[in-house]
Structures are given as structure tokens and as C-alpha cells.
Amino acid sequence: MGAVHPADVPLVEARALVRRAVDKAEQLGLRGAIAVVGASGALVTASRLDHGGPGGMARARSKAWISATQQIPSSEHLRRMTSLPAPISTGFVTASPEALFPGAGGLPLHDADGTVIGGVAASGATVSPFLPTGVAPEVVSADGKPANPEDLLIAYAMGTPYVGQHGDDATRWKDRFGDLTVAPADSLGMKPAPPAAGQHQLDWAIDLIDRVLAEAARQGLRVSVAIVDPGGDPIQQDRMDAAVAGGVEIALATATTAARFGIPSELLAAWCPADQLAALHPAPLLAVPGGIPIEVNGQVVAGLGIGGADPARCAELARDALARTPAPLS
């Protein structure tokens, strides 16, 4: 008999999947974000490659949410949305605000019994189905057939055979490489990628979050953690197994508040009305304890936020983790 309650993909499995995608993305010369959402619809983990730029994380998370909750590839969801009458498709987005970007590329994740336990997707500055300038044909070939970078890194991360989700790979290949063919033995698309070695900001963020998660576990807390750049765009996000779903948004909002204003998140209310600030920028803001700015040489370079437990304890976790973590490179 299966579990009574649906389960989200465990954090350790989701982290490993994202790391494989990061390795492949670096090999392909891509910069963007990869997100894993649980079957519950709550984010499990997400990583942004160095110099990935803002916006990609939100798109990746939306496509992963669609695949996890609708239990289909996001390309199939897109086909359905574009064939439905406008009132229905508009109503779906209204009822499902995390499905704002119904693009192709997201795939559901299954457990050993075939039950959907999550969804994964990638997007960002140069993460797309188009072949990047200078890419070697062998790298974007899967078993001797044309592939596209976005779908390739997801298939590689999942360890499943490559299937294009973005239309005609052959046409894009011909536009770039003409009639060139690559023998299956020479195709590198699904072969092991070297471990990513140039993700210094991401690696620093993961190390900091790992310190938070280890201390939270020691204290018997289940929390979510976010690290964002100075503009509030996420660099790394993680939710501990069995942590409440709402902690994801709390962590992101407190981290964003700390990063954008350069103050601990609880001090924002003394500066200005948070409800009015929300109308000025789409990044979430929350004036409760849990968010701490991160500075290098007096300049704010990131924000750390923790949510899902008592805010005072979350703030203490954040301060302790920062005190024990080397500062990021300026």
C-alpha cells in the first residue's frame, strides 16, 4: 500500500538533480536558473548559475510548478492553454498564480512507483532552446541526433533519454551547422559533464545555506532558506523536508527586504510602510525578523532570509550562519 499522503521529492534528491543540471549548463556555456517544485506545489530547491541575471528563476519555478501540479510536461500544458478559449486559459492563470509562465521545458518527476513527486525546469539569460554562439556541435548532439540546450540539460539531470520539448530541433541545427552530422559515439550531450568549476557565487550561497540547514536540524527546526542578489532575485533557495510550504515565501521576502534596503528585515517597518513599497516593485517584501543583508567592503552584495519557524529564531540562525561563513567575493 502506498503512502497515505502525497510526498514531495526529498531535498537531497532535488539538490543532486539541480547540480547535474548546473554541470551540464556550464559545459554548454549557459547562464540561468534551475528549479525543482514538489508535488504539493511548494518549492524544494533552486539554483542560479553565476551571471545568470534576474527573471530566470521565476520562469523556471513557474514551469516546474506546472509540471509538478498538472503532472504533465509543461509543453503539453502550453499546447492545451493555447487551444482553449481565452476565458478558460485566463481563469486557469487566475486560479494558479504560480503558472504565470506556461513555457515548454518543464518535466514531472516520479518516484519508483511512478507517482509524481515534483517537477523540474530551467530558464534564464541564455537558457533556451536556441544554440548558443560558439557551441560545439558534439555538445548539443544526443546519441547522434540534434538536441537543444534547455531540454538537454533537464534530460541529462534526470538521467532520462533526450526528448525535445521546444519544437523542431533539426531546423535549428540546420540553421547553425548546415548538413553536418555527428556520430552517436561522438555525441557529448548525454555523456557525463565535468563538475562545474566556475560557479563561485552559487557555491558560496550553497555553503551558507548548508550551514543554516545543519544548525536548524540540530535545533529540531524545519525551515526554508533563500539567498538573493542586491535586487532581490534568488541565487539559491532550499526547503527542508517536511518544512511548511509558507516558509519558502517568508524566506524569499525577508531576504529581499534585507538585500534591497541593506538592513535587517524587521527594521523596514520603521523606515516606511511596507504595503506601499510593494506597489513600487514586484519583489516581495516582509518586515519581520529573518532577513539579514550581506556586505563586502561596505556594499550590500546579497541578502539571506529564513522562514518557516519562529521569526526570532530564524533571525538568530541567519546571524550565526553569517558569522561562520567567509564573505563572498566582491
Rank of each mutant, 00 (worst) to 15 (best):
A170F: 05
A170P: 03
T171G: 07
T171D: 06
R172N: 03
R172F: 01
K174H: 09
K174P: 02
K174T: 12
D175G: 00
R176F: 01
R176N: 02
F177E: 00
F177T: 04
F177R: 01
G178T: 05
G178A: 04
D179H: 06
D179E: 13
D179V: 09
L180S: 12
L180Q: 14
T181C: 01
V182H: 01
V182C: 06
V182I: 14
A183S: 06
P184N: 11
P184D: 14
P184H: 13
A185Y: 04
S187V: 08
S187T: 07
L188P: 12
G189W: 15
K191V: 10
K191Q: 15
K191Y: 07
P192E: 13
P192L: 09
P192A: 12
P192I: 13
A193P: 12
A193V: 11
P194G: 13
P194E: 11
P194W: 10
P194C: 07
P195T: 14
P195C: 09
A196G: 03
A196E: 03
A197D: 12
A197G: 12
A197M: 07
A197P: 04
G198W: 05
G198E: 14
Q199T: 15
H200N: 14
H200Q: 14
H200F: 11
H200V: 13
Q201T: 15
Q201A: 15
Q201N: 14
D203A: 12
W204T: 05
W204H: 14
A205E: 11
I206F: 14
I206L: 15
I206T: 15
D207E: 14
D207Y: 01
L208G: 13
L208C: 15
L208Q: 12
L208P: 14
I209M: 15
I209F: 11
R211H: 13
R211L: 14
V212H: 09
V212N: 12
V212L: 12
L213G: 05
L213A: 08
L213V: 13
A214E: 09
A214P: 05
A214Q: 09
E215T: 13
A216C: 09
A216R: 08
A217N: 10
A217M: 08
R218Y: 10
R218E: 13
R218V: 09
Q219P: 08
Q219G: 10
Q219Y: 07
G220M: 05
G220N: 05
G220E: 02
G220F: 02
L221Y: 08
R222G: 03
V223I: 11
V223Y: 03
V223D: 04
S224A: 11
S224K: 02
V225C: 01
V225R: 00
V225F: 00
I227Q: 02
I227L: 08
V228R: 00
D229I: 01
P230A: 00
P230L: 01
G232K: 00
G232Y: 00
P234S: 06
Q237T: 11
Q237S: 06
Q237K: 06
Q237R: 07
R239T: 06
R239M: 05
M240K: 09
M240T: 06
M240D: 02
M240F: 09
D241E: 02
D241K: 03
A242V: 05
A242K: 08
A243V: 06
A243C: 04
A243Q: 05
V244Q: 11
V244D: 07
V244N: 10
G246A: 12
G246E: 10
G246Q: 10
G246C: 07
V248S: 08
V248R: 04
V248W: 04
E249T: 05
E249G: 04
I250N: 09
I250Q: 13
A251I: 06
